[in-house]
């Protein structure tokens, strides 16, 4: 399981498209994988979570569903694109506050499970988990 993480409009999808190349894959936007594919890319998880919260689903159920979705796919054949939304000001809208809490905890779980985490900063990848271990991260590319 590979996670690609970073702020909005930092070029995450573009980087993943290049990485995946011609490999056969299924690309999901705002949806969870529900059947096995040769390789799956899950993008826009935050939109899926938002939709579930708007429908009144509770956090535990959301986390269970995401956990099950990870298990449905062979572990080393999935890549999740996660958008960092949690470095701003506390939102005024209660639903957004809830969304921030839920994705924050959800991301922590997913980061723990992933064997590789890459952060994208304006197109530049940094391996933040599964690195060769060079302290200056830009040397790991």
């Amino acid at each position: 399981m590979h996670i690609v993480f970073g702020g909005a409009f930092n070029g995450k999808r573009q980087w993943v498209k290049k990485l995946v190349g011609n490999r056969e894959h299924v690309w999901l936007e705002g949806k969870l994988p529900d059947e096995t594919a040769p390789f799956v890319v899950v993008a826009g998880l935050e939109e899926w979570v938002r939709a579930q919260l708007e429908n009144g689903m509770d956090e535990q159920r959301i986390r269970n569903l995401v956990g099950q979705a990870v298990c449905k796919q062979p572990f080393n054949r999935q890549l999740w694109i996660l958008t960092d939304m949690n470095r701003g000001i506390v939102p005024v809208d209660p639903l957004e506050r809830q969304l921030r809490d839920v994705i924050g905890r959800l991301y922590q779980e997913l980061f723990k499970r992933a064997e590789q985490v890459t952060r994208i900063w304006y197109g530049i990848p940094q391996t933040i988990k599964g690195a060769d271990g060079h302290e200056n991260l830009h040397e790991n590319r």
């Binding site: 409009f9 960092d84 939304m85 949690n86 197109g123």
Partner: peptide, 20 residues
């Protein structure tokens, strides 16, 4: 300012493009 909720899509999209 891009590690946050989208508040002004046009502005943030432009900023991402410029930074990139």
């Amino acid at each position: 300012v891009l590690d946050d909720f989208i508040r002004d899509r046009t502005y943030q999209q432009w900023l991402g493009r410029i930074h990139f």
